[in-house]
Nucleic acid binder design. Structure first.
Length: 593
DNA sequence: AAGTTCCGCGCC
DNA sequence: AGGGCGCGGAACTT
């Protein structure tokens, strides 16, 4: 029945009943809600008009079900708009992608089936129910019925045909059953359940953050742009400060006509002015001593600010004092999130002052200190590395343990190990690192070797890497053929090493992403218990931001810390690794440490 | 003219 | 010659 029991994914069991939500293929404009047991057996079935769904959700939510649907960003935004939030969900498409690829259930029916509609990225037209959900069902019925072949006059150029086809074939109850079976047959079902629950909760959070938005002061942003660039040009031209710098660049080059915005043109001008550069990159320019360098670097910096986060960005992305990025959970192969539009994950430090709490509210900003090294220590069970992580600053812990001399070296060495540096300052530190942290280094080295062999690697919770593509296989095969030439062998070695660096990083970056999802999910649950509706407004790989009433800010900070500890326990049990945070309560984002 | 690729830079 | 991204605009392709 509808009654749910248990405390959910923390027990590493579902512990709840599922409520599957889907379009009713037989009745356009209607939504069917099916109760499904933990084992995937369907039970009670209710059909409601789509417009009644928010009320139904609100009513059933008190039983704490896990809502199951094909795509969170198809179903949840209309519910949020109607004021209905849910605690738990299960996003079939995101979970399908994980399960299809996971090496821990690679013999499942789900994994062995040919690719189908669930493997396709959700198409834009598939989002149509956002319209029909609150529209007059009668008007939605006409074109969809037409798609069934009874020639329903006006339709929207095939778009609705597509929806009808999808609804007919995407049987969400069957898919849920297939996924539950895959998990049950997995070699690590508990970890997978945690991953799928965390991924799905992430999708809820992404939709909620989009709905709530980041408080964004266009006044602060405008003042900051004006101070840096000069007054906003009326019709699109260059702001005055940029114009001045461009003139200085041309003067320094003795070239009155060079277009500073054209890299090839600029490069030619730089070279004829005697600079020894192969590109116009900042790093290369910085090594030159020439009067053009200073104004050119200043120009590039400001031009970047203008084009990436200038007035047109503001106009496009900030509305009613809120910046609403479109997050894409699972958008990165490693499990990290991506974003669509607005560049939310690349918000430069120079504009963060524009993120300002509402009056009477605070921003609580927290980031996990040296997350990836800590995750590596936990995954590998490297006690010495965990001990270094006992220090709030893991890199300083590495110095204190006498492994390297400076914090900078510790950081270089650690990131070099995780990224696979083979040359330069970080590579030379590898022998020391290997002696000090043998298990941690062995874990990433093993992942790299597997990748070089073209094998799959997996994160702690069971997200697996893709196989290298056809081009990779071809290059590698050619080098092993009878007619292989030295060039072929070299090329193959390069491709193998490239893929090894990818898989090396995959296991750490992907597990860090899992920790971060669990952190955020645990935090979200704690925030629900606090007064004044503090809510997540930003997430950036290892950093979260909560918009909180001032009176709740300290409780929120405590919740963030507790959630980090909970995430560590969820993934790694009561292991020895601390996940240290930097937490600040501020009025604007630039004030966060 | 419109679509695609590449560069350079922003973030972790 | 360190991993993962997104974006704007120039450069290039059709």
């Amino acid at each position: 029945m509808w009654v749910a029991a248990g405390c959910g994914w923390r027990r590493r069991e579902w512990g709840v009943s599922f409520l599957v939500v889907a379009d009713d293929a037989a009745r356009p404009g209607a939504v069917v809600v099916v109760a499904v047991s933990d084992q995937g057996a369907p039970g009670d079935r209710t059909v409601v008009d789509a417009r009644e769904l928010p009320a139904l959700v609100a009513a059933r939510e008190q039983d704490r079900p896990r809502w199951v649907w094909d795509d969170t960003d198809r179903w949840y935004p209309p519910l949020l708009a109607a004021g209905s939030r849910v605690e738990r969900a299960y996003d079939l498409r995101l979970c399908h992608a994980i399960l299809r690829r996971s090496a821990t259930c690679d013999r499942s029916g789900l994994a062995l089936a040919p690719a189908g509609l669930w493997d396709e990225a959700r198409r834009q037209e598939h989002a149509l129910p956002e319209l029909t959900l609150f529209d007059d069902p009668a008007s939605a019925a006409t074109p969809t019925a037409g798609a069934d072949g009874d020639g329903g006059g006006a339709n929207l150029g095939g778009v609705l045909d597509d929806v009808a086809r999808l609804d007919g074939k995407l049987d969400v109850v069957d898919e849920l059953a297939a996924q539950l079976a895959a998990v049950a047959g997995s070699r690590a079902p508990g970890r997978l359940r945690l991953l799928l629950a965390a991924e799905s909760t992430g999708a809820l959070i992404a939709a909620e953050m989009h709905h709530d938005g980041m408080p964004w002061s266009v006044d602060v942003h405008d003042a900051l742009l004006t101070r840096a660039l000069g007054a906003r040009p009326v019709h699109g031209g260059r702001p005055p400060r940029l114009d001045e710098l461009a003139a200085q660049v041309r003067a320094a080059l003795g070239n009155p006509s060079v277009n500073v915005d054209s890299p090839p043109e600029l490069l030619r001008a730089l070279r004829s002015a005697g600079l020894d550069v192969a590109t116009t990159r900042t790093g290369e320019l910085r090594e030159q001593t020439h009067p053009v360098v200073a104004p050119l670097l200043a120009y590039k910096k400001l031009a970047r600010l203008l084009s990436a986060n200038g007035w047109s960005w503001m106009q496009a992305w900030v509305h009613e004092g809120r910046f609403r990025p479109q997050y894409v959970p699972g958008g990165v192969v490693t499990g990290r999130w991506a974003t669509n539009g607005g560049g939310a994950l690349q918000l430069p430090a120079s504009v963060r002052a524009a993120v300002r709490a509402d009056p009477g509210w605070k921003l609580v900003v927290a980031d996990a200190a040296q997350l990836e090294p800590r995750v590596l220590a936990a995954m590998s069970g490297d006690a010495a590395m965990a001990a270094a992580g006992r220090h709030a600053d893991l890199y300083q812990g590495v110095v204190d343990a006498g492994i390297v001399d400076t914090r900078a070296e510790a950081k270089y060495a650690m990131l070099g190990a995780i990224y696979g540096a083979t040359t330069g300052p970080s590579a030379v530190l590898m022998p020391q690192l290997t002696r000090a942290f043998p298990r941690a280094v062995a874990l990433v080295e093993d992942a790299a070797r597997a990748g070089e062999r073209g094998e799959v690697v997996s994160t702690w919770l069971g997200r697996s890497s893709p196989l290298p593509g056809a081009a990779w296989q071809e290059v590698v095969a050619r080098a092993e053929g009878e007619l292989a030439r030295p060039d072929d062998v070299r090329a193959a070695r390069g491709r193998r090493r490239d893929w090894g660096r990818f898989t090396r990083n995959f296991v750490v970056q992907g597990t860090a992403a899992e920790w971060a999802l669990c952190w955020m999910a645990a935090l979200r649950r704690r925030l629900l218990a606090l007064d004044g509706r503090p809510h997540l407004i930003f997430f950036l790989h290892d950093e979260v931001m909560v918009h909180a009433p001032a009176a709740a800010a300290d409780d929120v900070a405590a919740a963030i810390v507790a959630a980090a500890a909970e995430a560590g326990r969820l993934l790694f049990g009561d292991g020895p690794v601390d996940f240290a945070l930097d937490v600040s309560v501020v009025d604007s984002y630039d004030q966060a440490s």
